[in-house]
């Protein structure tokens, strides 16, 4: 998967690159509008992460050029401006998603995956982790080819964890992903716990392994357990 990040803030650029590095993506970076335009004209990307506030040009304009060149390139706008109007403007001219700073890296990763999945013509809709297969088109989950019935929240939780597999996910990021940024209550961490407990039970009932690890005080990680 080929991803271009157009962002003038070097620290954000570096942080995103570092997080994405270990997922095996092909990453390209552009520090400004001209740089971004040159890269977009030269290569085809699966996804472009685009900051709207660029020093030498309008991000919205670059977005239009990306879409003009290749419709199936997914574009995720990254902006410090949370105003609804900009969000609407961005989506109207063809951005696939919109993320406001400050964002969680795990959330950005989930959005990238989702946008790329949606934009592929005959894409593989399955997200796999060993015996667990999540079909994102039908929203069905199987463990060892046996279907398990999940609630909407359990499904979203599982998909979020698997997409960010082998990464420690903070409780804050999970909470925001499932409930949005409006439910800002420490108690929502209790909800995560109870939904995860049910999810774990349902997976293990079909002889799936327990991949959900609790990271003390911080959050959770979906990974193969090390043999101790």
């Amino acid at each position: 998967m080929k991803i271009l990040i157009v962002e003038d803030d070097l620290e954000i650029l570096r942080t995103v690159l570092k997080y994405f590095d270990s997922f095996g993506y092909v990453l390209e970076k552009a520090k400004n509008y001209q740089d971004g335009l040159a890269k977009v004209n030269e290569f085809v990307y699966d996804c472009v992460i685009l900051d709207l506030n660029l020093p030498d040009g309008d991000g919205i304009d670059l977005l239009a050029k990306i879409k003009q060149k290749n419709k199936s390139t997914g574009v995720i706008i990254l902006s410090a401006n949370s105003s609804i109007e900009t969000k609407v403007a961005g989506l109207e001219i063809g951005a696939d998603d919109y993320l406001t700073k400050p964002f969680h890296l795990s959330e950005l990763n989930a959005r990238v995956k989702s946008v790329v999945r949606r934009n592929k013509y005959e894409g593989d809709n399955a997200v796999r982790f060993n015996e667990i297969i999540i079909d994102t088109a039908s929203q069905e989950v199987t463990v060892h080819s046996k279907k398990i019935k999940l609630t909407k929240k359990e499904y979203e939780l599982l998909l979020y964890l698997v997409i960010n597999k082998n990464r420690v996910l903070t409780k804050q990021s999970i909470s925001e992903h499932i409930w949005g940024d409006f439910i800002d209550r420490t108690d929502s961490y209790d909800f995560i716990y109870s939904h995860l407990k049910n999810l774990r039970k349902k997976i293990m009932e079909k002889d799936g392994l327990d991949y959900i690890q609790t990271i003390y005080g911080i959050g959770y990680k979906f990974a193969e357990r090390e043999i101790e």
Binding site: T15, K18, K101, P102, L105
Partner: peptide
Amino acid sequence: MTPIAIIRGKLEL
């Protein structure tokens, strides 16, 4: 928002 985003990202790393 930008520095907060950076701090958050670095902590996640």
